[in-house]
Simulated scan of single mutants.
Amino acid sequence: MQIIKLEEPFDQKKIPDSPIVLAMGFFDGVHRGHQAVIKRARLEAKKRGIKLAIMTLTPHPSVAFRHIPSSKVTYLTSLDHKLTLFEHLGADIGYVTVLNQYLIPMGPQEFVDKYMAALHAQVVVAGEDYTFGKQEIANMELLPKYARKRFEVIKITHLKENGQKISSTKIRSCLDEGKIEEANELLGYPFENDGIIVHGKQIGRKLGFPTINVEVTKGERIPAEGIYAVRVQLLSQEIMGMASIGRNETFGKNNKPTLEINLFDFSQNVYGQKVIVHWYQHLRDQEKYSDVPALVTQLGQDERDTRDYFKGK
């Protein structure tokens, strides 16, 4: 997939001179609703024998339009992960449009002219709630007017689960409540975080459950505190394990939250290595134990529960 960054003002020469079907959205999480938009666009591109392009934005529109500090915004998918998912869904071109000080005040007609028509879009596909600027003047109902018959507009209705719209907001809520299986159902794949293995306090090693400490990539959302069944991509392997997001309150107060993972049947020194953590099941909430033996007993049960969960999967 060709990745093209569009930062206003950009050079039109960056744009491939060939017709495309263009799927548009922010696509945080690239969940099943987003996938429906992209699959419809891919079908249209295949029917016409032209390339599929997908456009996303950076940073999150709430930073650009609602002035929320970027440090307060976390993402279901990093930009790199999002682009990888686009490629897996069949995109030929990934456009990354930067919401900078020149683009934010741009009117809807200029945006459509420059970021749809001038990209050689024959068809633009987006969800029914897609907006390109101020919602009341730049929505999917008005897009055909701004298109001026230069391209077709396809509006995709919301995909629903149990009568509720599948949305990034709902998935964030699930993660915040530790409902990882529900989040995965809405995503259509296991939620994941990536990061780097860093040095920790080596408490797990002393207990007989050595862990890797993962420093999650800045800006990525993580699940609620608790114990989870996970699979970890590390050194070209996928390793089963149990993850703990918590503060180790058994060993003191006011500790910062950490992500520690006990990898099963694995004992290599991997400090500094990159990892991808795939989250599968919430096993239990965090608890403060009265003594270390009680904690060790619970960790043994957590391991058995994790191994049982992954049997046959």
Rank of each mutant, 00 (worst) to 15 (best):
G246W: 06
F10K: 14
V124Q: 03
E225C: 05
E7V: 10
I3P: 09
L89Y: 04
G226M: 09
H60Y: 01
Q281S: 13
F86H: 00
L83F: 04
M242E: 11
G163F: 01
E249Q: 13
E260Q: 13
N248T: 05
Q202I: 03
Q301D: 09
G312S: 14
G188T: 01
V277Y: 02
A118L: 10
K82Y: 00
Q35W: 10
K13H: 08
I93A: 02
V292T: 15
H88Q: 12
I166G: 00
A126L: 08
F266S: 06
K313D: 15
L119N: 02
K13C: 03
P210A: 06
Q2Y: 02
I239Y: 01
D305N: 12
A36R: 15
I3W: 10
F111A: 11
Q298H: 07
K145C: 06
Y280K: 15
A243E: 14
N139D: 15
Q35P: 10
A41N: 11
G204F: 04
F27M: 01
L43I: 10
G226N: 12
G204I: 00
A23Y: 06
F310Y: 04
K274D: 03
P59I: 00
G208P: 10
Q122G: 02
P293D: 00
K39E: 06
A117D: 03
V63Y: 14
S78Q: 08
T84D: 06
V125D: 11
R205N: 03
E7L: 08
I4M: 11
K149R: 09
E128F: 13
E141N: 09
E44S: 11
T58E: 14
T131V: 07
G208Y: 09
P190N: 05
E110F: 04
E128I: 12
R66M: 15
E182D: 12
F111E: 11
K82R: 13
F191N: 01
F310W: 02
N184K: 09
K253T: 10
T97P: 04
M1P: 06
K256F: 06
L159G: 05
Y289W: 12
I154W: 08
Y280H: 15
S18R: 07
D291N: 14
E192R: 15
I239K: 12
K201T: 05
G107D: 07
K253H: 12
S18Y: 00
W279H: 05
E185C: 13
E7C: 08
R221E: 10
E110N: 13
E110T: 15
V230Y: 09
E185K: 15
G272Y: 01
P108A: 09
D265K: 11
R247A: 05
T258E: 02
E136A: 15
I137E: 15
G29W: 01
K114Y: 06
I4C: 08
